[in-house]
């Protein structure tokens, strides 16, 4: 959207030429919500992975692409989201509602952890977040009630596998829609300008009145909540956690980096494109083993070199 202003200068505000995209997005999400009435559960349950991948890529892009915080420790919140299901399920909360309750708790935890992580900058911040994720894993495996180091299944769950799939599908889609809407809203608000200012130059951002720490903390908490919700979906889909090493794996961060870089960092649509590319590659080529892994990283590396050369 362009605005006509005094002096007859048209100003493009925050790349607001996306109304059509938003309408298309809303229609796509609506169609996806109705998809289980058309497709068999075997098909729709595969899409759950795509939904949480887009969620993960979007929140990582918010962190790194918009606020300049390159975290490789988002698996901390994925793991907490997955384990949060058990904690609240054991207290008698329905596992789907448990995902939402856990996300609130994760927001509080991320807020607390931000005070540790924000003591570090740049590369040290990246490594610091990884160390924090490891520490979180170490704490979680201390609890026998959470399966200690062995992983655990959800105790009290919807019996009917079709309904189970359907609920997980809608939850994953709802989380994805909420993440995308929250991201759009955040970037359209003054906060969007503040975050990008901080990413480009913190000192100048401060001198213009932007509370850098506060803005970063808000994004850090939102990214933690998003990753936590994705973790809950993973746990619901797998009916539990196979092992803490899997759910707290740094590979999740590697995938997030891959998806965001492939699609285009610092753009709203980039993580969606990247997640779709990754999902398709994973779906069709993952049987190819090492060749697939090599090709994926070659693809990621070449995309990065293009990005950095052009920036």
């Amino acid at each position: 959207m362009a605005e006509l202003v005094p002096g007859h200068v048209r100003v493009d505000r925050l790349r607001r030429r996306m109304i059509a995209t938003q309408i298309v997005g809303a229609v796509v999400i609506l169609l996806l919500a109705l998809a289980p009435y058309v497709f068999v559960p075997a098909v729709t349950s595969q899409w759950i992975k795509l939904f949480y991948l887009i969620t993960l890529a979007t929140v990582w892009n918010l962190l790194a692409g918009y606020a300049g915080m390159v975290s490789v420790g988002q698996q901390a919140y994925i793991g907490l989201g997955a384990y949060g299901i058990f904690v609240f399920n054991d207290l008698g909360v329905n596992p789907y509602a448990g995902a939402l309750v856990a996300s609130v708790a994760i927001g509080v935890i991320a807020f607390g952890l931000s005070f540790v992580a924000f003591r570090l900058r740049g590369g040290y911040f990246a490594i610091g977040t990884w160390v924090i994720a490891e520490a979180v894993r170490q704490v979680v495996v201390r609890f026998d009630s959470l399966g200690a180091g062995r992983g655990r299944s959800i105790a009290d769950y919807t019996e009917d596998p079709v309904m189970r799939n359907l609920f997980t599908y809608w939850l994953a889609l709802g989380i994805l829609a909420a993440t995308l809407i929250a991201t759009l809203f955040l970037l359209r608000s003054r906060m969007g300008v503040a975050l990008q200012s901080i990413r480009d130059n913190e000192v100048a951002a401060r001198a213009l009145g932007i509370h850098v720490g506060r803005a970063k903390r808000i994004v850090f908490v939102i990214a933690g909540i998003g990753a936590g919700l994705a973790g809950s979906v993973i746990s619901l889909q797998q009916l539990g956690v196979q092992s803490p090493n899997q759910i707290f794996s740094v590979s999740f961060s590697a995938f997030m980096v891959f998806m965001v870089l492939i699609g285009g960092i610092g753009t709203i649509e980039g993580p969606i494109v990247g997640a779709v590319v990754y999902y398709v590659m994973d779906l069709y080529f993952s049987q190819m083993g090492l060749w697939y892994t090599s090709a994926r990283w070659a693809c990621g590396t070449s995309r990065c070199s293009v990005c950095w050369r052009s920036s």
Binding site: D12, S197, D200
Partner: peptide
């Protein structure tokens, strides 16, 4: 110290 990825207006 410009915010290089934002427009002049932003």
């Amino acid at each position: 110290r410009p915010f290089t990825h934002l427009t002049v207006f932003e």
